[in-house]
Simulated scan of single mutants.
Amino acid sequence: MKTLFEAIRPATFVESEKLKSLLNLDLTVASETFQHTGSFKFRAAYNLALNAPNEEILTASSGNFGQALAYACQLLNKKCTVVMPETSARVKIEAVRNYGATVDLVDTQKIGRNERVARLAEQMPNAYFASAYDDEFVINGNASLGAELAVRNFDVIISPVGGGGLSSGIVKGLCDAGGVAQVFGAEPLLANDAARSFQAGKII
């Protein structure tokens, strides 16, 4: 059984001379395109599957976290059920299935994913419910990227913010490694619930 750092692929760092010239600053892109299943989600998923005491894991996902968790569970010989909207990309649905997970498709016009997960959780009392972002195992898994960033001594790190699992993990990994870079979260203006929540002091 591999540890998290043995299982993941390190991030790919790309320096762009064009962006450097355009913005008049040194800019490095940290890409997770070559991570297992194609995104940073594998870091979180593997750490969760590795550390959750349950032999079965339940989650909801439109695709990326579902794929990552399905693959992690395959590697660790655990069962995995992923609740996905019927409108999810077919390639992502098939990818989750191909990794050995059970896919539970829902019509989100009739029932929300969280409601469906709650119903399944009642039927699967021994399963661990995995949030794609609001989970200590997820944040600790993403902290592995923060540790990789710390050794490069960046002045500033800009992290995308969705649910907050990646940005939280990056901050934790940086702090654990003694990094001093400033971290900024970036999100679309029309979906800036993290910024509004931060300003309000509560989750919006």
Rank of each mutant, 00 (worst) to 15 (best):
S144I: 02
I157R: 10
S144E: 04
S159H: 13
P188S: 08
F198H: 12
K202N: 09
V180I: 15
S144R: 05
K202A: 15
L145V: 07
V180W: 07
F154T: 04
L189P: 00
A150E: 07
P160E: 05
G162K: 12
L189H: 08
D155L: 14
I157W: 10
V151G: 00
A194Y: 03
D155C: 13
G146I: 05
N153T: 03
G146P: 02
G169E: 01
I170N: 06
G201K: 15
L166D: 03
I157D: 05
V180M: 09
E148D: 04
F198Y: 06
S167M: 13
G146W: 01
Q199I: 14
K172V: 14
I203P: 02
N192T: 05
A186S: 13
A150D: 01
R196Q: 12
D193V: 01
R152N: 04
P188E: 01
L145Q: 09
I204C: 15
S144D: 02
Q182F: 15
V171L: 14
N192H: 03
G179A: 14
A177E: 08
G163I: 01
G201A: 14
G185N: 00
N192S: 04
E187P: 06
F198W: 11
R196N: 01
V156R: 07
G178S: 13
V161W: 09
P188Y: 04
V183A: 14
V156P: 09
S168H: 03
A194G: 01
V156W: 11
P188D: 00
G165S: 06
A200M: 13
A200I: 07
R196Y: 03
L149N: 06
G146Q: 12
